[in-house]
Computed example of a mutant assay.
Amino acid sequence: MYARAVSGDLVYLDPPFAIRNRRIFYQYRYDDFGLADLARLRRMMRRLDDNGVAFIVSYAASEEADELSTGWRRIEVSRPGNIAGFKANRRLAREVIITNA
């Protein structure tokens, strides 16, 4: 079933990270989300905003996030990474929160 966002809704978007098409998490296929998808995401953000729909996008701090966030409110955060198998190997991950709210 497909639901359409309407004015007053809030949409949270958490896409895989393209990072110039370099895979960050190897559980995704290399071609699951790339630079062309970032352009589609940017168009979706514009469409949501034009329709009065609030959005929040989380993305890895990167050049792509810089491009994606142009014209929107941007907050950079650090969070503990939980990807490494051993706690000693886990590092802080830098992410960007992009929103029109």
Rank of each mutant, 00 (worst) to 15 (best):
R20I: 05
A36W: 06
L41Y: 06
F33L: 14
A101D: 05
R40N: 12
L41C: 11
D9Y: 03
D37P: 09
Y59D: 06
G52W: 03
S7G: 05
A88S: 08
R91P: 03
A60P: 08
N21R: 10
I98K: 01
R29D: 07
A39Q: 09
I24R: 14
F33G: 00
A84E: 09
I97V: 07
R23Y: 00
R94I: 00
A39I: 15
M44L: 14
N82F: 05
M44W: 05
V6W: 09
E64F: 04
L68S: 04
D49R: 14
D32A: 14
K87Q: 08
A101N: 04
E95Y: 10
R79A: 13
R4G: 05
G52R: 11
R73N: 10
R73L: 03
V6S: 11
R73G: 00
D49M: 10
S58K: 05
T70S: 13
R40W: 11
R23D: 01
I97M: 06
G85F: 11
P15V: 14
R29W: 02
R22V: 06
S62A: 00
R20D: 12
G81K: 13
I24S: 13
S58F: 05
L68E: 00
N100S: 05
R43S: 15
F25L: 09
R79C: 03
D31A: 14
Y2W: 15
Q27T: 05
F25T: 08
L10R: 09
E95I: 00
R73E: 01
D49P: 03
E95Q: 05
A65Y: 00
A18S: 15
F25W: 08
W72M: 02
A18E: 01
I83Y: 11
L68F: 03
E95N: 04
G34E: 02
I24H: 07
V57H: 00
W72C: 04
L38I: 15
G8E: 13
R79M: 11
N89R: 15
F33H: 12
E95W: 02
A54Y: 12
L41I: 03
I97S: 01
R46Y: 01
R47C: 14
F17V: 13
F86V: 10
R91L: 10
D49Y: 06
A65G: 02
L35F: 03
Y30Q: 15
T99D: 02
L41K: 06
R43N: 15
T70Y: 09
N82C: 09
E64V: 12
F25K: 02
R4S: 07
L38W: 08
I83F: 14
R29E: 11
I97K: 05
F17M: 08
R40C: 09
N100G: 06
V6F: 07
L13S: 08
A65M: 03
G81R: 12
R79S: 08
N89Q: 12
Y12G: 03
D14N: 14
F55N: 01
I75W: 14
S7F: 00
R23M: 05
G71V: 01
I98R: 01
Y12H: 11
R22H: 07
